[in-house]
Each structure stands twice: as C-alpha cells, then as structure tokens.
Amino acid sequence: MMKGNFEPKIIGFFCKWCTSAAADLAGTSRKKYPANVIPIRFFCSSRIDPQHILQAFRNGADGVLIGGCHFGDCHYQNGNYKTARRVALLHKLLEGMGIDKRRLRLEWISAAEGEKFTKVIKEFTDEIKKLGSIQGKN
C-alpha cells in the first residue's frame, strides 16, 4: 500500500466528561480534522480494559487514542490515574508483541480544550500515517 494514500483506521476511546466534551466543543467551534478517528464514548477512561485495546489492534486498528481528564480533574476522583498506569504497562507489553507503542496514545484533554482535541487528532493521524498500516507491519 502506498503510504501517501494510506488512510489509517483509528479508534478513539474518550471519557464522557472531558475528552468527548472537548470533541463536542471542537464541533461546536467548527474545527476541522481528519475523519480517521471513530469515537467510542465511555463514562470514564478507567472503564477501558487493556483487552479492548488489544482487541482493536487484533481487528486491524492502526492506532488507538485514549482521552481522559487531566490529573486532579477526574469526575470519578482518580480514574485517570488508573488509566495512566494501565497504559504505561500496556506500552511495555505492546513492544513485546511487536506493535509500535506509538500506536497507542494517551492524552488528557479537558472539556475546554476543543483546540487541543483537534490538534491531537491531526497529530496522531499524521503519526499513524507515517507508521503505516498495522497489517503491513506484520
């Protein structure tokens, strides 16, 4: 596959209170960003089981983006800390599985950061484009 034409498939796991709200704000502000990320909305980023992430890769996701609240802002007190720990561990495991850990990205994007949301989507899509298809890599 030519890298120039490659449109990666990316799953966005977003918490309802911050990152999904930031995505809504980006929409309300009519920001434009690539359509590669398909959002799935959770109550809290800490609901995301590492298995869901692995399953996404298994089913052909070229990247997974997790968005939660900034530290100290979690609607459920400390869910984002749990997410941070889980992702850190998973990053180590991914390397062992031969998956570039850059394909899994964790970002704290608050409800007020529509701009940041847009930026992250653009950056991440670009990065995954550069990394190429996960199947090509395998």
Binding site: G27, T28, A35
Partner: peptide, 16 residues
C-alpha cells in the same frame, strides 16, 4: 453523535 463529532468537523460529504 453524527453532528458535533462528525458533520461539523468534516467537509467532504463522502468521508462524513
């Protein structure tokens, strides 16, 4: 959510 997270942030109808 096909408005805030879809139609409002994309321009291309096919992609949207």
């Amino acid at each position: 959510n096909v408005r805030e997270q879809c139609s409002w942030v994309h321009d291309d109808k096919a992609i949207g």
